[in-house]
């Protein structure tokens, strides 16, 4: 093997190792996040814990921080698939979706299993009761969910690219923002954009947060519209910014 071939081989090996580590970290993060997310909500709903809404929002932000920081310390970890989608588009690397999304799904499944186990022994809470404002307007719920997904993705991009905060500071900003977003939107019961796979498995494993929804509405609300909103944000705002940046560099 020639020297240049050897270098290429080593670079490829390092790349593979990084992807494997990233994938494992994403799984761990997704597990921690989904478990903590529901644990904190169940404690808020349980009278015995005396948790108020502000503390709950802060705890959810902390859960996000812990989930990102413990496995990898930088936020190459995404946890939320909409963030992965924006990153894949921005970097023009669809492969990111392939190695992140499946482990996010798997992690959320394990996280929800952990929560269900703890919940069945202790708090015995139904997350569906976390409905502070009863919204019956489906269109409005879909709009809130989609705006949340779009807003989250855009702020991730802002922190990552515009403020250039890659390390600990970036993770802290994002967690604070996540806490604020949770506080703003969770009044409207189970905004799935903040933990899509978590809610998916919570429903699938028999707890039924959205039991009264029609299947089509369910798909539109939790998948199609949020993805469409994220794509809109990407093509209208992010790509524009990217082009501006390129022009400035030239």
């Amino acid at each position: 093997m020639t020297e240049s071939n050897r270098r290429v081989f080593l670079r490829e090996k390092l790349k593979t190792k990084t992807i494997i580590l990233n994938t494992f970290a994403e799984f761990l993060a997704s597990t921690i996040f989904s478990a903590l997310y529901f644990i904190f909500i169940s404690r808020y709903l349980d009278q015995g814990f005396h948790t108020d809404y502000i503390l709950l929002s802060f705890s959810i932000g902390l859960a996000f921080f812990a989930a990102v920081y413990i496995p990898f310390h930088t936020y190459r970890i995404h946890i939320i698939p909409f963030i992965t989608l924006v990153t894949a588009l921005r970097k023009r690397k669809p492969i990111i979706l392939l190695h992140k999304i499946p482990v996010q799904i798997l992690g959320a499944f394990v996280g929800v299993m952990i929560f269900n186990t703890i919940n069945s022994i202790t708090t015995k809470i139904n997350i569906e009761d976390f409905q502070l404002i009863q919204l019956n307007n489906t269109a409005l719920i879909i709009a809130i969910n989609s705006i949340t997904a779009a807003f989250l993705s855009y702020v991730f991009y802002m922190i990552r690219v515009l403020f250039n905060s890659r390390q600990l500071a970036g993770t802290i900003y994002l967690s604070l923002f996540y806490a604020a977003l949770f506080a703003m939107t969770s009044f409207f019961a189970n905004v799935s954009a903040l933990n899509p796979f978590g809610y998916f498995f919570y429903d699938l494993l028999g707890n039924q947060t959205m039991k009264n929804q029609h299947f089509l509405v369910f798909i539109v609300n939790h998948a199609i519209m949020p993805i469409a909103a994220v794509l809109m944000v990407y093509f209208i705002l992010i790509q524009k910014n990217n082009n501006k940046q390129k022009n400035l560099q030239q």
Binding site: I39, F65, A66
Partner: peptide, 19 residues
């Protein structure tokens, strides 16, 4: 960073199990 990550893990474990 390893130490801080360990502390973060400790905080998470505490948050889950303190009740």
């Amino acid at each position: 960073r390893t130490f801080l990550r360990m502390l973060a893990a400790m905080v998470v474990i505490s948050a889950i199990f303190y009740p």
